[in-house]
Structure formats: C-alpha cells, structure tokens
Amino acid sequence: MSKTPALELINIHKTFGDVEVLKGISMKAYDGDVISILGSSGSGKSTFLRCINLLENPTQGEILFNGNKLDLIQGESDLVANNMKQLTQMRQQIGFVFQSFNLWPHMTILQNVMEGPLNVLKRPKQEVLEYAEHLLHKVGIAEKKHMYPNQLSGGQQQRVAIARTLAMDPQVILFDEPTSALDPELVGEVLGVMRNLAEEGRTMLIVTHEMNFAREVSSEVVFLHKGVVEEKGTPDQVFGSPKSERCKAFLSSTF
C-alpha cells in the first residue's frame, strides 16, 4: 500500500437548491482498496460518487487524485473545474460504470470499447483492437462484438460497459449501482465480473444494494445516512456488529 491515497475526498458538500444532500463526506482510497458505499435511497451515495469526477459539482470540498488536488473555483452555485485539461486527464484515469450502462447506441460493442483508448488516448489501432477483444472475452461477450447495444440484454450491456471502462486502463473505477437496473436473474453475471476485478487488485468504489456481494469483496464498507458517514469499517465490523442504530436498522431491513 502506497503512502499517498489514489483518491482522497475531503469534506465534500453538495446542495441542490435548498436541500443539502451531502453534509461533509471524506474518504480515502488506496491502491487495491475495494470500498462499498451503502445507504438507503436519498442518502446521497450516488451523488457522492458523481461528485468525485465532477459529473455533479460539489458545493464545497477537495478532491485529490494521487495527491494532486483538482483545481476548483467557485461558480454560480457550486465549485467548477478551473482547468478542463486537468479534469479530462483525471477522468481518463478514473473509470465510471453507470446504473443505466449508457453505451453509445450508434456504435457496435467493439466500437464502444475501442472508442476511449483509440480516440481519447490516441493509442495505436491494432493494439486497441487486440486489447478490446481480450476484454470482451474476459467479460464473456466476445461473440457479440459486432452487435449494437440495443440488441443485448441489460446484463450483457453492463458487462460491455465494464469492458469499455477497463479499456482505458483506469487506476480507480467507480461503480454507481451497476446492478440496480437489471432483472434479478442478470445480476449475477455482472457481479461475477466485478468480483474478478476485485480479486485482480483493482481499486474500486462501489455504490450498491447487493449486501452479500459488498460483504464478500470489500476491504472497507461505508454506510451513508442523510448525507453523512454514519458508519464505516471492515465488512465484518459493519455487517457483524454495527455501532450505529440506523445502520443496524438498514441492514436488518435489507437482509
């Protein structure tokens, strides 16, 4: 474990209108950490994840990537990136997997996976193609590479989305409820892929409702409630003997 966290969030606040969704959340992720973020809906867990790479602009707080502070300035109502180049470079190294997959529907599966490394990172085509095919094979979807996203099931689309993220060789991957939009029988195939990534030692922050999965793969579990960190610790601590009453109530209602 290196001394500098791969990702460090300090005192993140986010307000939508009059509603304060995040009330000062801090978190550190070192290389190899798998951090699961739990909480009931409205607890701010997705908003927090989206603040990390500025899909939402926090109203207050600091974001450090490998010790480098993201340059933020005060905008009209929240903090905005002061240096677009720094932001895009950071985004290139932080993968993000969406709840609703968000594949580009006008591109084939293979084109979706190749797009980032080929046109953003400008890597040579042959190398990108081989890597993309390797990744599609890894997520078990190589035979569908020439199909379009709308011809695939939700679980297959999400696996493609994960391959698309991996193709960028990200240092950290953020997962925003990756199985919540899937039919129950399709959840397993996506969790299987994510489990393999965790075992490879990838650094991951996962917002999820899959309690068993979180318990098995996480190095740390964080429970958010009403925009604050209510409880955090190892999976055994949080799931085995939670200190917070709210966390206890949440866990007993989900198991």
């Binding site: 470079q89 985004r91 993968g95 969406f98 997959f101 580009w104 529907p105 960028m168």
Partner: peptide, 14 residues
C-alpha cells in the same frame, strides 16, 4: 439522453 453525454465525459473526451 444525458447518460450518453456523461459516458463521453467520464472517458475524458473534450
């Protein structure tokens, strides 16, 4: 759909 635009943002497209 906004999600497709966000997918562009997260791979760091200009």
């Amino acid at each position: 759909p906004e999600g497709e635009v966000e997918a562009c943002k997260v791979v760091g497209m200009s």
